[in-house]
């Protein structure tokens, strides 16, 4: 996750390098915070499994999709 992304509790994201803003839901916010703290996608998955009532196969698919979106919005560094 790019370090300079500004994040607020309302789920509002601002990328100061591009000027784009985004909105995410509470679980999205959790994931982005974890990624920003340096967790790997695997560690994020574990964290979500511990916090939310969800099956692993489902979060695996949804998390993959979410991270793809973060990448397509260029909110993540190339190394993930």
């Amino acid at each position: 996750m790019k370090k300079n992304i500004a994040l607020s509790d309302t789920g509002f994201l601002f990328n100061p390098s591009t000027g784009d803003s985004y909105s995410t839901n509470p679980i999205g916010l959790d994931i982005i915070r974890e990624l920003k703290d340096g967790s790997s996608p695997k560690e994020v998955l574990k964290f979500i499994l511990g916090k939310y009532e969800v099956e692993e196969s489902r979060i695996e698919k949804d998390l993959g999709d979410f991270i793809d979106m973060l990448k397509s919005f260029q909110l993540m560094d190339n190394n993930g």
Partner: peptide, 11 residues
């Protein structure tokens, strides 16, 4: 301020 835009955009 960006905060204002955030407010109208999120809440």
């Amino acid at each position: 301020d960006l905060k204002e835009y955030e407010k109208i955009s999120t809440i």
